[in-house]
Amino acid sequence: MLSTSKMLVLLTGGLIVCVAALMFIAGFFYPGGFTALGITPESTYSYDVSIDASSEISGVTFFLPLPAYMERSTTGENIKAEGYGFGNGIKSELLGAKDALALKVSADTLKESHFGNIAESKTLIDTLNPAENSEILRPVMDLTDEQGNTEYETYVYAKYDADPDCTVKITINSSGRNEWTFLSPQSNSFTNTVEITLTGPQAGWNTARAKIDSGNGDHIITM
């Protein structure tokens, strides 16, 4: 017959094994496993813009796509107050409504500029299917998705005076990222990029290609 001490050891060991097994199983359920394991991820959106001209341009106005979803842009809402890279003659203004939000950027003259924002999301970001459930650069036109390679068209407005052979490259990088720690640091993310190169003076809307790279990182909560 087992003594009381041995019985306690066996019961404790069995309990530990059961708890470990439940934690292991919960880890395979994403994102529901966060609640089961008592984990609160940190989720953030980032928005970063680079404008590079081969020579100085003047009378500058751009309407640049912003990441948005369900009438909200986390990075756009506080970009003037908390964003980086503004000033030195660069002015910004949030324009549009619903999912057609844009960042108006204006300056008397411009040669190069780099600005953006990083903002906390109040909800977990869907990094597996961001085109349907997360804030991406909009508007979205003619979206295609082949084997995880998502591409679409969007629009950039540009108005400025420039030499006929002046080129202006605009690169917009947006991303969504979730980070958490469960015994070790883990994360997952998606990236969304728009690039366009313009030549000569501009005064209107231009079509730009956009890409989404999704499903990066951990989508199982490992122990």
Rank of each mutant, 00 (worst) to 15 (best):
T44M: 09
T44N: 13
T44S: 11
T44D: 12
Y45A: 02
S46H: 01
Y47F: 15
V49N: 07
S50I: 13
D52C: 09
A53F: 03
S54W: 03
E56P: 02
E56I: 13
E56A: 08
E56D: 11
I57Y: 09
S58G: 09
S58N: 13
G59H: 05
T61K: 13
L64I: 10
P65G: 01
P65C: 04
P65N: 05
L66Q: 07
L66N: 00
P67K: 07
A68V: 15
A68C: 13
Y69P: 00
Y69S: 03
M70A: 14
M70N: 14
E71R: 14
E71A: 15
S73A: 08
T75P: 10
T75F: 11
G76H: 06
E77N: 05
N78I: 09
N78A: 09
I79W: 05
I79A: 03
A81C: 03
E82W: 01
E82K: 10
G83C: 07
Y84T: 07
G85N: 05
G85H: 04
F86M: 12
F86V: 10
N88S: 11
G89F: 05
G89P: 09
I90W: 11
K91Q: 14
K91H: 15
K91E: 15
L95H: 09
L95W: 09
G96D: 07
G96K: 00
A97I: 06
K98T: 14
D99P: 03
A100I: 15
L101W: 07
A102Q: 14
L103K: 00
V105F: 11
S106I: 07
A107K: 07
A107T: 00
D108A: 11
L110V: 03
K111E: 11
K111G: 12
K111M: 11
E112H: 15
E112D: 13
F115M: 05
G116M: 02
G116D: 02
G116F: 04
N117R: 01
N117C: 04
E120W: 09
S121F: 08
S121T: 03
K122N: 05
K122R: 11
T123A: 14
T123N: 13
L124C: 10
L124W: 12
I125C: 07
D126S: 03
L128A: 14
N129S: 13
E132A: 11
E132C: 03
E132V: 09
E132F: 08
N133W: 02
S134Q: 01
S134M: 03
I136G: 08
L137D: 08
V140M: 02
M141D: 15
L143G: 08
L143C: 07
T144Q: 13
T144I: 12
D145S: 15
N149A: 14
N149Q: 14
T150H: 04
E151A: 09
E151G: 00
E153S: 14
T154I: 05
Y155K: 15
Y157T: 02
D161I: 12
D161F: 14
D161V: 12
A162I: 01
D163S: 08
P164I: 07
P164S: 10
D165Q: 03
D165T: 08
C166V: 11
T167C: 01
K169M: 09
K169W: 00
K169R: 14
T171M: 10
T171C: 02
I172D: 02
N173K: 15
S174P: 04
S174M: 08
G176N: 01
R177D: 04
R177F: 08
E179S: 15
T181V: 15
F182H: 10
F182W: 13
